[in-house]
């Protein structure tokens, strides 16, 4: 199948945005970041919304989009619903954070943001699990969507912490989160690669260089260095973000390129 760029951008941007909000929410437990929380939540909301708009550009009759809301079903309706809930959670966190709400409330919303990020980024991938698509019908696919979005979101959080010159403890913890995200991306995308059989042939370069090295190894290395050394976090964070985003986009491109239909009798391209 042809790469559906609207959908690639949707899940890559919105997924990263959701995890960026989750990282900011998680900080309610640690209280390490002082300046990065507000910009991170705002950037997260923007990414989620821009991703949502990107997905709509895939439709030929966007004027009829409201019909989706009238027809609850897994897949597109669920993704739209989760996206909406995630934005509401993020906005509520932002408002309450600005108003210095109690620690308990912020922690509660922080947990909600993490759960929403996980559920939303997983759901975006699970929509593609169908028995007609032989290389997609594995749980490793939605897990890969989750893992690569986690890597991109944590890397963005690390970048914002570095840009806003957070203290060493915050930077070190953010780097640890990048490490966790990178491991998640690496494990889940390797699992998908082997289960779907996309590690060789035409997709080998995209998989090994784009997904594994850029999306996993690079942010992993940045996380390891960043945990120990907090000076010079900015260039490290820039590299982590670039790597994680390349990996996240490459993973989604690969899904389209490597698709194998059970049968494509009419040979109609999508």
């Amino acid at each position: 199948m042809e790469i559906q760029w609207s959908l690639v951008l949707f899940t890559a941007l919105s997924g990263a945005g959701a995890w960026l909000v989750a990282c900011a929410g998680l900080d309610a437990f640690k209280g390490l970041a002082k300046k990065a929380v507000v910009p991170a939540v705002i950037a997260g909301i923007v990414l989620i919304v821009v991703g949502g708009i990107a997905s709509a550009t895939h439709l030929s009759h966007v004027d009829r989009i409201m019909a989706v809301l009238a027809h609850p079903a897994p897949g597109i309706f669920l993704e739209a619903l989760l996206l909406g809930i995630d934005v509401v959670v993020a906005a509520a966190f932002l408002v309450l954070y600005k108003r210095n709400a109690s620690e308990g409330v912020l922690k509660g919303l922080g947990i909600a943001a993490v759960v929403m990020a996980a559920v939303f980024s997983y759901a975006c991938g699970s929509s593609y699990m169908m028995s007609s698509q032989l290389a997609w019908n594995t749980i490793a696919l939605p897990l890969g969507y989750l893992g690569t979005a986690l890597a991109a979101g944590t890397a963005l959080w690390y970048l914002l912490c570095a840009v806003f010159k957070e203290e060493a403890a915050a930077l070190s913890f953010a780097a640890t989160e990048v490490l966790i995200g990178a491991v998640a991306a690496l494990v889940t995308s390797l699992a998908y690669g082997f289960m779907a059989g996309v590690t060789g042939g035409d997709s080998a370069v995209l998989f090994w260089v784009g997904v594994v090295v850029c999306g996993g190894v690079v942010p992993l290395a940045c996380g390891v260095f960043g945990m120990k050394k907090t000076d010079g976090a900015l260039p490290l964070a820039v590299v982590a973000v670039a790597g994680a985003f390349i990996g996240s986009v490459a993973f989604r491109m690969l899904m389209w390129i490597a698709s194998i239909a059970l049968m494509s009798l009419f040979g109609v391209g999508i």
Binding site: Q133, L262, S264, L265, V268, I270
Partner: peptide, 10 residues
């Protein structure tokens, strides 16, 4: 069209 196991949608 992606979900049809036979690709018989147009």
């Amino acid at each position: 069209m992606m979900a049809c196991p036979y690709g018989v949608r147009s």
